[in-house]
Computed example of a mutant assay.
Amino acid sequence: MIIDIDRVLGPIPGDDVASADEKGLVAELDRHRIDLACVVHSHALFYDPAVRPPRVASDRLVRVPVLVPGPLGTGGTSAGQARLVRLCPSEHRFALTGPHCLALAGDLADQGTAVLLGWESATFDEIHRLATRHPRLRLILIGTGYRSLRELADLMDAHPRIGVDTATLNGHQSVEWLVRRYGARRVWFGTGAPISDDAGPRFQLDHLDLPDADVALIAGGNARALLKLDHEGR
């Protein structure tokens, strides 16, 4: 099973995308042979996370809430039973290591909820401080890229609960190097589409120079366990 951990549903400013609605997004998943996608709604990403986006009807799409901490934010309870949420400190102008976000991160760690965090949305020091304060919080860093590998290695060496998605890890053998050093359970298939390309990461997944068991974890095994899909009979 192939699960895209990092995808956007809805219209994108300045671009006409096929995934502007559910029907178009599901067609894109079919085209790339992706079974399931964890989706952030573009309204929450680019506009106001406090306004609940339209309900996701397709059983191939898992809604990922965007949370903003503090009295002017979404409120921690807006995550509901979500197993995966996203924090966007740069985009929504809050401090990742401020008191409100640290409190929210502690609640998420206690609930076993994982967090998607964009590499460009926070600084190295902020990510390090957050992971140090809440070592049980699972952070999945997205949009890292090959230029970030040295900094990424610093963080992953220091914090066993930090993982990474494959969306922009397109340097030669970058994914293989990460898996051999940290294990496949810390690497997740993601595309970041339609903001970034989905065909490249999907092609890369089919050609990873890794054991089949490791590829299966990256492709969807890690996400299945996180989302508890196996317990729901999927």
Rank of each mutant, 00 (worst) to 15 (best):
G10T: 07
G14L: 02
D15P: 00
D15T: 09
V17A: 10
E22Y: 11
K23I: 12
G24E: 02
I34G: 01
C38K: 04
V39G: 03
V40C: 13
S42M: 06
F46L: 10
F46G: 00
R52G: 01
P53K: 13
V56F: 02
V56I: 12
S58E: 02
D59H: 05
R60L: 03
V62D: 00
P65C: 11
P71K: 14
L72C: 05
G73D: 08
G75E: 11
T77Y: 13
R86D: 06
F94V: 11
L96E: 04
G98A: 15
G98M: 13
P99H: 11
H100Y: 15
C101A: 13
C101D: 08
G106Y: 04
D110E: 09
D110Q: 14
D110F: 06
Q111S: 07
Q111I: 00
T113N: 08
T113P: 01
T113H: 10
L116G: 02
L116A: 02
L117A: 08
G118W: 10
W119Y: 11
W119P: 00
E120I: 03
A122K: 05
T123K: 04
E126V: 12
E126P: 07
I127E: 09
L130D: 06
A131E: 06
T132F: 14
T132D: 14
R133A: 15
L141S: 05
L141N: 06
Y146D: 10
L152E: 04
L152A: 06
L152R: 03
A153T: 15
L155P: 01
L155A: 08
D157M: 15
A158H: 05
H159K: 06
R161Y: 00
D165P: 00
T166K: 03
T166R: 02
A167R: 02
G171C: 14
S174V: 13
W177C: 05
W177G: 05
L178C: 08
V179H: 10
V179D: 07
R181E: 14
R181T: 14
R185I: 08
R185W: 10
R186M: 15
V187R: 02
V187M: 12
W188D: 00
G190Q: 07
T191Q: 09
I195V: 13
D198Q: 11
F203Y: 09
F203T: 13
F203Q: 07
Q204S: 10
L205E: 04
L205Q: 06
H207N: 12
H207R: 14
H207C: 05
L208P: 00
D212A: 14
V215M: 06
A216M: 01
A216W: 06
A216Y: 01
L217V: 07
A219Q: 03
A219F: 11
G221Q: 07
G221L: 07
A225I: 05
A225V: 07
L226M: 15
L229H: 09
E232K: 15
R234G: 05
